[in-house]
Simulated assay, not measured.
Amino acid sequence: MSPAVEVRIARLDDRLAEPLVRELTHEYVTRYGPGGHTEMARYTPEEFAPPGGLLLLLLEHGEPVAGGAYRRHTDPGTAEVKRMWTHSAHRRRGLARRVLTELEQAAAAEGHRRIFLTTGSRQPEARQLYMAAGYTPLFDLDAPPGALHPLPFEKHLTDRRPAAPDPREALAP
């Protein structure tokens, strides 16, 4: 049986987020060259902090194993997912899907009606994740691999807040 996974809200500049930043930067630089550093420095930690954003980490035994964030997008009612990451030793366990689901639920609870995100053409596993999670590609799926960069996706969110209890149930014996 695998250990319990704890969901924790953090800041991008928190000590707990350091493995996310370090490994994600390495991943971007490995796949895209020096521009990976530019991408990781593009947004301030405040953009991923409430009230406009959120950074979530999944922890096992107090250590981060996956994470992701969203920030307020320029379109009203839209959250933009960024910084999706799963520790290299913990991939293929469904953790990225869990992070994405947690971010969608949090964004919907904050009143966002849509999620927008981009991934790179050199991240086929991310492309597969977003397609499997119900995201609509906003690019030509028939374009040759690597011809497009970035690859934008969107997903319209439904109201995921729990329904109010039926008052008649309170009267039942």
Rank of each mutant, 00 (worst) to 15 (best):
P3Q: 14
A4D: 12
E6W: 08
V7I: 08
V7Y: 04
A10M: 00
R11P: 06
R11H: 12
E18A: 15
V21Q: 10
R22S: 04
E23D: 05
T25F: 02
E27G: 14
E27T: 14
E27M: 14
Y28N: 01
V29H: 06
R31Y: 12
G33W: 06
H37A: 13
H37N: 13
M40Y: 10
E47A: 13
A49F: 02
P50D: 10
P51V: 08
L56D: 01
L58C: 09
E60R: 07
V65C: 03
A66S: 04
A66H: 03
G67F: 07
P76F: 01
T78Q: 01
A79G: 04
K82G: 04
W85P: 00
T86F: 06
T86P: 09
H87P: 00
H90G: 06
R93L: 01
G94A: 01
L95P: 05
L95Q: 03
V99E: 01
L100K: 02
T101K: 14
E102P: 00
E104Y: 00
Q105N: 10
A108S: 00
E110F: 13
R113E: 11
R114W: 06
T119A: 01
S121P: 12
R127H: 13
R127Q: 13
Q128R: 15
A132G: 11
G134S: 05
Y135T: 05
Y135F: 06
P137C: 11
P137L: 02
L138R: 07
D140R: 10
D140A: 03
D140Q: 04
D142S: 15
D142R: 12
L148C: 03
H149A: 11
H149Q: 14
P150M: 02
L151K: 08
E154K: 10
E154V: 09
K155F: 08
L157M: 04
T158N: 13
D159F: 07
A163L: 11
P165V: 09
A170W: 07
A172N: 12
A172C: 12
